Amino acid sequence: MPEGHLIHRHAREQHAALAGHVVRAAGPQGRFDARPYDGRALAGVEAVGKHLLYHFEDGLPAIHVHLGMRGIFLRYDDPAAEPRRGTRLRLATGRWRTTSSPPPGASPSARPASARCSPRSGPTRCARTRPRPRRCGG
């Protein structure tokens, strides 16, 4: 299961590689319609707990990805390489490509940034940084 620190690392790497670039977006598996995002500029990638949010320019809803128990991100330096079977989301530039396979959820998120976390979300889903460790025994 991908843990929070790994999701935050993916967010940093993908933000550095994709933010500010026009991306080719695809949903090869067929369960995610990436057509509205194809050919659009990616404004940034953000990790919120174990969730990744891909923010696009032009006011499009962010893409929300949660990898679940078995999902993975793969990075390819060759953007023309064929996606693996089961790839739910593929984002590519002329130099770089990332895919997520097979997350239980990749979906447009219509919620504004301020509403991403709710009291039900708990501290780890809403934390942008690691929580401080608690001291035991006083």
Rank of each mutant, 00 (worst) to 15 (best):
E3N: 01
E3M: 06
E3L: 09
H5C: 02
L6C: 00
L6Q: 09
I7G: 00
H8G: 02
R9Q: 12
A11N: 05
A11V: 04
E13H: 12
A17K: 01
L18S: 01
L18C: 01
A19S: 06
G20V: 02
H21M: 06
V22P: 00
V23M: 02
R24V: 10
A25D: 03
A26W: 04
G27Q: 08
G27W: 07
P28R: 05
P28E: 08
P28H: 04
R31H: 03
R31E: 08
F32M: 04
F32Y: 07
F32W: 07
F32I: 02
A34E: 09
A34Y: 05
R35L: 11
R35H: 07
P36T: 03
P36R: 05
D38E: 06
G39Y: 06
G39Q: 03
R40A: 13
R40Y: 08
A41T: 15
A41S: 12
L42K: 03
L42F: 07
A43F: 02
G44R: 13
V48Y: 12
K50N: 08
H51M: 15
H51N: 12
H51R: 15
L52K: 09
L52N: 04
L53F: 15
Y54W: 15
Y54D: 04
Y54V: 09
Y54R: 03
H55Q: 13
F56P: 00
L60N: 04
A62M: 14
I63V: 14
H64L: 11
V65G: 01
M69C: 06
M69H: 05
M69G: 00
G71M: 13
G71N: 08
F73S: 07
R75C: 09
Y76N: 12
D77E: 15
D77T: 15
D78C: 10
A80C: 06
A80W: 08
A81Q: 14
A81M: 12
A81N: 03
P83Q: 08
R85E: 11
T87V: 12
T87W: 12
T87R: 09
R88M: 15
G94V: 01
G94L: 04
T99F: 06
S100G: 01
P104G: 11
P104H: 10
S107D: 07
S107P: 00
S107N: 03
A110D: 13
P112L: 14
P112V: 11
S114A: 15
S114D: 14
S114W: 14
C117M: 10
C117H: 07
C117A: 10
P119L: 04
R120K: 13
R120P: 00
G122H: 04
G122P: 02
P123V: 14
T124W: 13
T124R: 10
C126P: 01
R128I: 09
R128V: 13
R132K: 04
R134A: 10
C136S: 10
G137A: 12
G137C: 12
G138H: 14
